[in-house]
Write a protein that binds this DNA or RNA. Sequence first.
DNA 1: CGCGTGGTTATTGTATACAAAACCATCTCG
DNA 2: CGAGATGGTTTTGTATACAATAACCACGCG
Lengths: 223, 223
Amino acid sequence: MSRASEQAYAKIRSHLMSAALKPGEQLTEDQLAQITGVSRTPVREAVRRLEDELLLVRSDTKRLFVADWSRDDIEEMFALRQMLECHAAERAAQRLSREQIGDLEAINRALKAAIEQPEPDVVRFLEANRAFHEVIIEAAHSPRLGQLLGRLVEAPVVLRTARTYSQDDLRQSARDHDELIAAFAARDPDWARAVMGSHLRRAFHTFAKTVGPPAPRYGNGKA
Amino acid sequence: MSRASEQAYAKIRSHLMSAALKPGEQLTEDQLAQITGVSRTPVREAVRRLEDELLLVRSDTKRLFVADWSRDDIEEMFALRQMLECHAAERAAQRLSREQIGDLEAINRALKAAIEQPEPDVVRFLEANRAFHEVIIEAAHSPRLGQLLGRLVEAPVVLRTARTYSQDDLRQSARDHDELIAAFAARDPDWARAVMGSHLRRAFHTFAKTVGPPAPRYGNGKA
DNA sequence: CGCGTGGTTATTGTATACAAAACCATCTCG
DNA sequence: CGAGATGGTTTTGTATACAATAACCACGCG
């Protein structure tokens, strides 16, 4: 993307991450233009992208708001992500090159290094985690699959950066990654799929704990 | 979406369907502005949408082209669609209201009516087919799932409207729909998923026959 | 004769001014 | 007192002019 609109995108996104812009808050294009230092035209471009990624939403009458993900939204998102990313893992197991498997090992070493400190470096962890999954999606050789996943993966992470991760949770993720690498090395698609499935499902529950209780089976708070 | 950009979107799309704009052809924003009768600003908006739907693509240096779907692209798309829409069928089986099941029956009657003529009305068939699947996705109650599917479903259909459908193929589709309705009425998610799976996989093969032979397992024509 | 190189044109990206639509407070009239 | 109309204000949508960048082409050099 071009310079100004890319810059606008990055800047708005970082404001969302830092919670300078809060879920539910209304935004105007002018306001974002001021924040980003470019005119409304590239801002509109950036906003469209962020809408696609579900970080921003529009009301019925075109007013712009910071997205506010409910627990149900997050569960739905994880279910879809699990479906797609299990598929990716299965394909990747049949396609990963030796080099790519080596890359995954290196990334996971970096991820472990970020954990094993007096105070785990969550930012580095998240970055390594993202890179790990990206290699897998890349290796799946399904461009549209990558595109669809790009939409889903970032949003809840970005909007809830404040959440706390226990060191045990992080370590379990690293172990999952180790097992995924083993499945890939064995070229076993079924194994890879199964590990990815439990990896993501656990990640969901870990994530959900910090958000709130599940919605009741029938009826809801609004009724 | 707003008036001008919506109009631009619809007009460009119909040009793609009528093959007035051919796969691989380069486009300029000015040219599209002339065709649609609005300025470049809403055209850019429309183009973004069409890029999202993979009907248009950009070269590495931002040049715009009509997308040209290969057989492999179409197969990939159908695989993703199958994964997502089977999920939708499963959820829909647990959630469809009596009214919605009635709607499906009505839509499928209309679909059959479009087929059972001396010369099947393919346009009406496609429209009924789209409506049928839409009810299911709606009933799945998963807004993001609907959003993802919206991306995938239209593109190849639009870009290959010229294809010919045999009356037998169309009849088989109608029968699949009948069985889906039966599965929904029985509230059997497994059954619904299975029928949807074979329905779409058959649709892919039907579609693929008109496109070309599968790519060889190793190597390709380019080498 | 091939290939870089500079200038020229075509195309996309950005800013800005204006138009249309939505919002909101207030007033009017039943 | 309240429902709904009304006008001013805010916000989004569109057109247009200009800036930046990429493609093109012709020319000269090795």
